[in-house]
Design a binder for these strands. Structure first.
Length: 312
RNA sequence: CGCGGGGUGGAGCAGCCUGGUAGCUCGCAAGGCUCAUAACCUUGAGGUCAUGCGUUCAAAUCGCAUCCCCGCAA
């Protein structure tokens, strides 16, 4: 089949690599324009572009995929299939109608759960037991098209949004290969999503990383795991932003009633902080502009002691 | 040229503004105390203060340049 691949983010790379190996005719890779980003605002290309260029593929980087120029360009490619993975622009019906067979998308959730930009993060924040990937027919409304294939995996206690994404991006690439097969054979069926079971997973905002010490230890623990790599869970320590990367929920019963955010222990056992319900051991931290370090080193270097209160 | 923080024994930090003996907590090593210990006491090893140039009688500290690390913002 003649395929046009649309993708930008890290998540899309294994799918593109799988396509390259698959022997299908990849006529073009469409990705977001090179942008000034990162420290000092240097111009960077997307991970997908680097992969495509390394493979000698033609790339296309329109500012607006819906523009007349983009549409004309895409039509000339005469593609059978559009494969869209974490591309970053919304399509118009006119664009979706271009491929001869259909436009398909890999989405990192078990649809209809978690439509939107941050499905992996919300699955962890909400303490789900399972996550997965879906391959669906792309319709105009975001992530609402009928599902072709779907596969789930267990979310382990040790998973963070980063480790889970890493698993899902490869799972997605495998499932894409299966999807190409059934599409080629015309042996697929389209399963409409149950609109009653839709859960939205909007893009995370900076404030989604702010820790509310009044929440339960378990909820904060899930937040810490779920908001990686961005925005990262954070609180404040002596007026500076303090990022929290790794925590453990502890069954501890102190002999006084601490305020939420109060450090009740800071020693070789770790940094134990009181939450609204339960206690958290802060295992990996990073103070604003500082290095990421263990709780041990944080105590030693910053003279953290019981009675200090986090959050301001 | 988006804004800002930082590079000091193995680790995390202080010292820098106001130049003049390399400091703290921890780790490590040896010894001691103890029924015992992640506890306590003694002692000890370990540092071209990122790099280069400059100012100075004298630079971790002041000036210029370079390299590297990090946060914000996008």
């Amino acid at each position: 089949m003649k395929i046009v691949f649309f993708g930008s983010a890290h998540f899309a790379v294994p799918a593109l690599q799988a396509l390259i190996k698959s022997g299908h005719e990849l006529v073009c890779v469409v990705t977001q324009p090179d942008k000034k980003r990162g420290r000092h605002l240097h111009v960077c290309e997307t991970d997908v572009k680097s992969t495509a260029v390394a493979a000698g593929l033609k790339t296309f980087q329109p500012e607006n995929i819906k523009s007349k120029e983009s549409v004309d360009f895409l039509k000339k490619l005469d593609a059978d299939l559009f494969v869209i993975v974490a591309y970053g622009q919304i399509f118009s019906q006119e664009v979706l109608d271009i491929p001869r067979v259909m436009p398909i998308n890999i989405h990192a959730s078990l649809l209809p759960r978690y439509r939107g930009a941050a499905p992996i993060n919300w699955a962890i924040i909400n303490a789900d037991k399972k996550a997965g990937v879906s391959i669906m027919y792309v319709s105009l409304k975001t992530d609402s098209g009928p599902v072709i294939l779907q596969e789930g995996i267990r979310i382990e206690d040790s998973d963070t949004a980063v480790t889970l994404e890493d698993k899902l991006r490869y799972l997605g690439a495998e499932l894409l290969m299966d999807a190409l097969k059934v599409i080629d054979d015309r042996s697929y069926c389209l399963l409409e999503q149950d609109e009653d079971k839709v859960i939205l997973a909007p893009k995370l905002r900076k404030e989604d990383g702010l820790i509310d010490w009044g929440e339960s230890a378990t909820a904060i623990h899930n937040q810490v795991r779920g908001v990686l790599p961005w925005p990262g869970a954070f609180t404040f320590f002596r007026g500076k932003m303090l990022k929290v990367f790794q925590t453990d929920v502890l069954p501890i019963f102190p002999n006084h009633k601490p305020v939420p955010g109060e450090v009740i222990r800071a020693d070789k056992h770790g940094i134990v902080v009181a939450c609204g319900r339960g206690f958290l051991n802060l295992k990996e931290l990073q103070l604003e502009a500082g290095k990421r370090m263990s709780g041990q080193n944080f105590i030693i270097g910053h003279r953290l002691k019981p009675g200090d209160v986090l959050g301001k």
